[in-house]
Simulated assay, not measured.
Amino acid sequence: MERQLISHLAHADHPIASPISEANLTRLLRRAKLASGARILDLGCGAAFWSVRLLELYGDATADGVDLSDAGFADARRMAAEAGVADRLTLHHGSATDFTSAEPYDLVLCVGATHAFGGLTPSMEAIGGLLAPGGLALVGEGFWERPPGREIEAEIGEYADLPGTVAQAESSGYHTVYAHVSERGEWYDYEWSWTGSLIDWALRHPGDDGDAAMAAALEHRKMWLDGYRDLLGFVTLLLRRG
């Protein structure tokens, strides 16, 4: 089973697709204080939950969502229609690294998708090429709360600590104007939802796909419970390009 489909199924009951509660997400998005007619770009949008919520909050904004997989696009269109914003959301099936636009954006999101650009620093540089002067970037990235063991870091990936993550994000001429550090409860809700939704799907779909989904869920759960639990943090930074 493709990794993108597994991720889509795992996020079925947690469409925010990051360790953030709906209340904290809304508070974070309101801090963007977007002007009338704002243009929004969501890189690695998945089911575009963040874009739909932004369009609900900012009534005359428009948004483009880009993702390498279109597994979440049907859900995105459904949510957008239910919210009454479908006419202001455009979805693009393709690589975020290849996306171009003739017009710049007032807000560019890249939440949990910096791997597409090869890390946080190159992501910020790529976002800068899509932003209008003085525009905002909303970037979600992992960081180590405490130094992990070598085995865990090799399995999960290389991250800085929180000060180092902020420094990387600001290294291309940005200034942090707000941020949210995911709380322990948000992490636990996210992880139990991710693994539980996938396990539930696997039990209801016996066969090769169900077996693959179950294996992915159990592998992920072990990696979390026995590995990065209470070690890996997540910060969502709102930055303005200076």
Rank of each mutant, 00 (worst) to 15 (best):
G72D: 10
Y58V: 03
A17K: 04
Q168L: 06
L225F: 13
G210V: 02
F49L: 04
L225T: 15
E153W: 05
T90S: 11
G37Y: 09
T100N: 12
L43C: 03
H8W: 00
L162I: 05
T236K: 03
E82K: 11
G112S: 12
H11G: 02
L34C: 09
E170G: 00
D200A: 09
L9M: 07
S7C: 05
T165Q: 08
H14L: 06
Y58L: 10
D208F: 03
V177C: 04
L239D: 00
E186H: 05
D211S: 02
L239F: 04
G46L: 00
K222E: 12
E141C: 06
E125C: 05
A216R: 08
T100M: 12
W224M: 12
G242N: 10
G185L: 08
W224C: 10
E22I: 11
G94I: 11
E151C: 00
S101A: 13
F99G: 10
L68W: 05
L28N: 05
A38M: 11
V235K: 10
L239G: 02
W224D: 08
P104Q: 15
G44A: 03
Q168N: 01
A167T: 12
I152R: 11
M1F: 08
L89V: 05
I127L: 15
L28Q: 11
L34P: 05
G196W: 00
A81M: 13
D208M: 02
P148C: 15
W201S: 00
V181R: 07
E153H: 02
D161M: 03
A80M: 07
G196Q: 03
F143E: 13
A160T: 14
A17Y: 06
A213N: 11
E153S: 07
H11Q: 06
L231Y: 14
R221G: 07
T165E: 02
E170D: 00
E219D: 13
S36W: 04
M214L: 15
P147M: 07
P122I: 06
F117V: 04
Y159W: 13
G185V: 04
S18V: 00
V108D: 12
T26I: 15
R184I: 08
D189Y: 01
G46Q: 01
G84H: 09
V66E: 14
C45F: 04
W194K: 02
A202T: 08
G37I: 06
V111D: 01
A83L: 09
L25A: 06
A213R: 02
T114C: 14
G210P: 04
E2V: 00
R241E: 12
D67P: 07
L55G: 09
A81F: 13
V235E: 06
A76M: 04
R229F: 15
L34N: 10
A81Q: 15
L107S: 14
A160H: 14
G157R: 06
R39D: 04
E103V: 08
S95N: 11
A71N: 07
L120H: 12
V85M: 05
G129Y: 11
S95M: 10
T236Q: 11
S95A: 12
D211M: 02
T121C: 04
L89H: 05
A169K: 01
G173W: 09
E2W: 00
L43W: 07
A212S: 09
Y190Q: 01
D189R: 05
H220V: 01
D209G: 08
